[in-house]
Design a protein around this nucleic acid. Sequence first.
DNA 1: GTTTAGGGTTGG
Length: 785
Amino acid sequence: MRVAESACQFESKRGKTAVPLRSHLDVMPVHVLLEGTGPQIPAHLTRIPISLITTSTDVTDKIVKGKVVHKGPLVPLNNDSFILKMVIQEDSMLNSSSQNSSVNVVLFGSLAKNFSQSANQGVLRPVLPNPRSPPANKRRSPVSAELSSAKAPKYTYAKLDSLKAGSVVNVYGVVVFFKQPFKSRGTDFCSSLKITDHSNEKIGCTIFCEKLEDHPKIFRNGDIVRMHRVKAQVFNKSITLVNTFGFSVVTFDGVKGAPVEPRTSSRSFHFDPDDQRTVEELRSWAASQALFASVTSTVPLSAVQPKAYFDLTCQLLAKAPVDTTCTLLRVWDGTRCPHTLLKVIVEPHVTEGQLSFSKERENLIADVLVYDNHVEVARKLKPGVFLRIYNLRAIAGSSTVPGLTRSQLQVDHLAFHLHGGTSYGRGIGILPDNSPDVQELKRVIEAFQENDEEALSELNDSDLLEVWKTPPESLDGETLDCSTERSCGHDMQKVTLSEVKRSGLGRVHHVRAQLKAYEPHRLHEALKLYCSKCKSMQDVPDDELLESIFSEASKDCGPCSPPPWVLSGQVSLPRHAPGPSNRALTVYLLTQLMFEGKTKDVILLMGSTLEEMCQLMASYQNIIPVRASGGHLSLFDLSAPFLFRGRKRYYGCKRCSKAAVREQSWEGVEMIDEKIIAEALGIQPLQFILLMKLELQDATDTLDVFMWRHAESFFGVSAEDASANQEAQNSICQIMDSLCPPGGNVGQHPWLDLCLMAYQAEDDDGQTKTCYQVCHTTVVKPSSE
DNA sequence: GTTTAGGGTTGG
């Protein structure tokens, strides 16, 4: 049957609604008529009994009238439209013959949507004409005044021990296990839960929904769920429930005596006194049962036991990505953990939320590392949000954690890990502000915050005393020209170096100091190669070492059978090149690139000296040094650069690379650069960095700080450029000379405004000590003074 | 009217 340009009327809770509709269109508005006004059915329509409708009936300008005995779910279609099926049954008084008294009706688009929202099963009075032909019948449709007074039908709920495979049912249950929704491999998030009821049957449920808000809002075991339209299936010889079309779920707190407040994202849902009673009965029953002798339980930080798994209800204060598989969540619950807490060091500029806290507050903050699948969930969290972290693990003892330092060791500190996966319900759940647990948490936190402020004001008094003792030139006063400026945007007071040394757990400090000394003085010693994967650092090999590697390798350039995807050839060195005249070197060209006219983009070069290699750089964009090893083409040992590109040399990490000459498709590659080549060769590239130790001085003390991560922005020069470019090198040297003039009096050195970050690191003896790094600071160029 | 997952910890 086609539903087309027509009108549909029905009674709703708000009154009578007339929905003009047009087939396949969603543009018609809904008109809500006041109670008591009659349905306005166009005069040309004629009512016919449903029993007379056949597939060959001409239903032009005909209407039917009846009660909605089935209202299907609103089903979204791909094109943002909807479809809804209903069954209309004719009033029995008009249809004494019992045959064919009902008809299936399919609604489309906004009509389906409006119908779904406004109409209840049993109270609907639709009219179904066909508008295709012009009005023919002038007879007024016999709209009856007596509307159906049938009540909305009650939902029936299946007991969990009576589920039949294949049936679609509604159920109530007490949650005995649950996982927070997690991303499935398909299109949806998946919730996994297990419920039980008076029958004591425990039934696993799997809920797939694309939207998180449509998932059951379960916060703890004992919560009560009511699910509509779940399908019983057999899996592993047990009945399980899976959501099916029209699924909806409402969750209630399982605490006996608590208000029965439904948690749901459904815009409207059925709830009557019977539901109220069911929830209360389940609560009472559950309270008398040992339903979940749970492995984990909600524990405040003050009661955390090392090695234990537990659920933590807390507030998120700040977060920071540590690496791609790990994110740091800084949380608190207002209680103090009796164990020393491990502090993870991250850079301030990647931190979201408050960067530093008073010492008192810092003692209450737990650093939680969340891994793998939880990283994506953590990404969406905003500082301030209340969380429950499920199946968190507290681990005591020395732990190596990812972070700024290469191996940061904090002995006997308690670390919190949310390991990857969802086993045992592992996950992060957001608690709504109105949940009783959050209300309770807020009370504890607010009490602390008052104390915190008192403590802070005391601290400020002592700071003031310190100020009096400090010589004026090292304080805020902006009376001095500074050669550096901060770009961090932290809003904090400057402190003296002696205060920095005393401030223990503080993370970021602003200081004004002079550069007393620094090392190394020779720039090439400050240049290092750093592996972002294994965090190792090494010196850049000097030319002497490279020359010997090349000369050693040139002895291995005997006969070699190249792979089929290269063409071997000879290349002559430029005439002015030193060394044996007319010396020709073996090169290998990549046939695929030759076909694309990019012959000179990449070549493999065999048997050259370092100097010859450099000569050839004028003619080729990328040269990969190779040698013959056992008659096969192979790469150099990674002590040497794997690639020469312009004046730059690129190195790979010996530990993290699986280097080999192998075929690679260059199709679609716009620009062949060091990254693409490293990837093609299975090389983990090393990054050039600058590393210096600076000795700072102010009126109160001296302090050694490192310049590393932020060295490039400090100097305005990239370390990679500094590795190859004389101009970049000069720039760095000139800056250091101006900040710390050779031979001068330290008192006359320029003052520097610096942002320092403190972190824990292990020294050579395995001792943990506090180190400092210059961050978010740049040199003020002379031109801008 | 499709798919996803189908509880059960070791590990940064």
